[in-house]
C-alpha cells in the first residue's frame, strides 16, 4: 500500500500475532473500500442523514489543527498536537507525491463533512465550538464507518508525528520519544537517507 496506513500489528520478527491479524486485515479491507468509495464522490457522509458536502473547501488547515488539538491535547506534562508539530507533519503527508491520492482526498473531504455536521448540529463552525461540543460532534462522526475511518486516520498520523524521526517534520528534538521514555535506534537517518530520497537510488 502506498502509504501503508494500517501496518502490520506490532511487528514480530517472523510471524504476525494471529489475534491482531484478523482485525488488521478486516480493517485494511474495510478502510480501502471506504477510501475508494468516498474519494470517488459517492454519497459517503459522516452524518447518517443530512446535506451533501458543500462549498466549505477553502483553507482546511485551521479545522484540521483544531481536530488534531482535540484528539491529542497539549498538557502540562505531555506534548500535544501543537508541540509535536502535528499539522506540519500532516501537511507533509498530504503533499507526499508518493502518497495515496485516495487517502489524501479522503482526509480533505472529511474536513467538509465535519464542518457540515458541525453547522447542522450547532449552527456554527467546528473551530468555534467549545471542547464539549467538539467532543459531541466527533462522537457522532465516529458513529458512521466513514467517519470512524477518518478519525482513525488522523490518529494514525498523529502517532507518526509524535514518534517518527524528527527529519520528517514532527517530533521536534525527539519530544515524543522523551515523553514516552523511548530510546531510538542508531544510527538515526540523515536527510539523504530518508524515505523519498532513498527511492532515487
Amino acid at each position: 500500500m502506498p502509504s501503508q496506513p494500517l501496518p502490520l500489528p506490532a511487528n514480530t520478527h517472523h510471524l504476525t500475532l494471529p489475534d491482531e491479524l484478523a482485525a488488521w486485515r478486516q480493517g485494511l479491507l474495510t478502510r480501502r473500500r471506504f477510501l475508494l468509495a468516498s474519494a470517488g464522490g459517492l454519497a459517503a457522509l459522516f452524518a447518517p442523514i443530512g446535506a451533501s458536502a458543500g462549498a466549505n473547501t477553502g483553507n482546511p488547515w485551521p479545522l484540521l489543527a483544531a481536530v488534531q488539538a482535540h484528539l491529542f491535547p497539549s498538557e502540562i506534562d505531555a506534548p500535544g498536537a501543537e508541540e509535536i508539530h502535528a499539522l506540519a507533519y500532516l501537511q507533509g503527508v498530504l503533499g507526499d507525491p508518493r502518497g495515496d491520492r485516495d487517502e489524501q482526498r479522503f482526509l480533505l473531504k472529511g474536513v467538509d463533512w465535519l464542518e457540515d455536521l458541525s453547522r447542522q448540529r450547532h449552527k456554527t463552525s467546528f473551530i468555534k465550538l467549545d471542547p464539549t461540543h467538539r467532543e459531541q460532534v466527533l462522537r457522532e462522526v465516529v458513529s458512521t464507518p466513514e467517519g470512524e475511518n477518518w478519525v482513525a486516520t488522523l490518529l494514525f498520523y498523529l502517532c507518526e508525528a509524535l514518534l517518527a524521526d524528527p527529519i520528517y517534520g514532527g517530533n521536534p528534538n525527539g519530544i515524543g520519544w522523551a515523553w514516552l521514555a523511548h530510546q531510538p535506534g542508531f544510527p538515526r537517518p540523515l536527510q539523504d537517507q530518508r524515505y523519498g530520497v532513498l527511492h532515487e537510488r
Binding site: A10, E20, L71, P73, V142, V151, L155, F156, L163, L180
Partner: peptide, 27 residues
Amino acid sequence: GHPNVISRALAERRDDDGNLVWGSAFK
C-alpha cells in the same frame, strides 16, 4: 517485543472493544 514505537502507539488507538480512543485517555 519489537521496539518499533509507532507500531506500539498505533495499537493503543483502540480499546479492548475496538472503539477509538483519543484525547487524554489515549495519552
